[in-house]
């Protein structure tokens, strides 16, 4: 028996909107720790890792570890039927091949339930090693989204370089080149508007921009985004989910041959 009651149902709606275009089918894993997902995009270049900790749910019942295969587009369709202020409850019986999403309006005057068919999803769970990153950049998530969008109108790949001076995003294409430099800036009214550049070693990596643009669909989840870079590792783009966990995107770099 599985029963997860999420008062801030909009979080789950936002999570699905953020990942449904990158990943088609995925297993949601439910355990005492929380509700999680790990999945790669079809080309195995990007990986999504979601964690919603059990403590973040108003009610969390998961009698045994369970993995539920879902088509994310279909799940997003169902969650779109929930209001932004609705409480969302996920329910599944042991051995059932369906999951039920129950939506309650804040005033309890409208209660809906949507039952979705589960599916078998072949997926391999990857071990993500703990890593010391050469550089960690924290910036407003809207600013990062703006940079990715702007650069993708010029080129297909982005070079992200972190030095003492700050973080530089560069691209080039048929019509020309573009460089955006963000310097550390902590003299802001609100902490979420700050740009913080922590650098242990200078690092410069090249990535396909279209994936970054897909990751920025996580922007509604958090005011800030954290970008962690190491020369031998995939970049991590992380959106914290307040009080609950995180949505992390990993992207493998492009490397000169």
């Amino acid at each position: 028996m599985l029963e997860l009651r999420l008062v801030q149902g909009s979080l789950l709606k936002k999570v699905l909107e953020a990942i449904k275009d990158l990943v088609t089918d995925a297993n949601f894993d439910c355990s005492a720790t929380g509700f999680s997902l790990q999945a790669m995009d079809s080309s195995h270049v990007a990986l999504v890792s979601l964690l919603l900790r059990s403590e973040g749910f108003e009610h969390y019942r998961c009698d045994r570890n369970i993995s539920m295969g879902m088509n994310l587009n279909n799940m997003a369709k169902m969650l779109k039927c929930a209001g932004n202020d609705d409480i969302i409850t996920l329910k599944a019986d042991d051995g059932s091949d369906t999951v039920t999403f129950m939506f309650e309006s804040p005033t309890q005057d409208k209660i809906s339930d949507f039952e979705m068919k589960l599916m078998d999803v072949d997926s391999e769970h990857l071990g993500i090693p703990e890593a010391e990153y050469h550089a960690i950049v924290r910036m407003p998530s809207t600013e990062f989204a703006r940079i990715c969008k702007d650069l993708s109108s010029i080129g297909d790949t982005v070079v992200i370089s972190v030095t003492k001076e700050g973080v530089k995003f560069s691209t080039s294409g048929d019509i020309g080149t573009a460089n955006v430099v963000c310097r550390q800036n902590t003299t802001v009214d609100k902490p979420e508007d700050a740009t913080i550049v922590e650098m242990n070693e200078p690092v410069s990596l090249t990535f396909a921009l279209r994936y970054f643009n897909s990751f920025t669909k996580g922007t509604p989840l958090s005011n800030t985004v954290t970008i962690s870079l190491s020369s031998e590792l995939p970049v991590v783009v992380e959106y914290k989910i307040a009080e609950m966990g995180h949505l992390r995107f990993y992207l493998a770099p492009k490397i000169e041959e």
């Binding site: 790669m40 195995h44 590792l233 492009k254 490397i255 000169e256």
Partner: peptide
Amino acid sequence: GSKQYTITRFFGKQ
């Protein structure tokens, strides 16, 4: 040219 690596090149299967 540069080669696009896959995630499995960095993270092993469990």
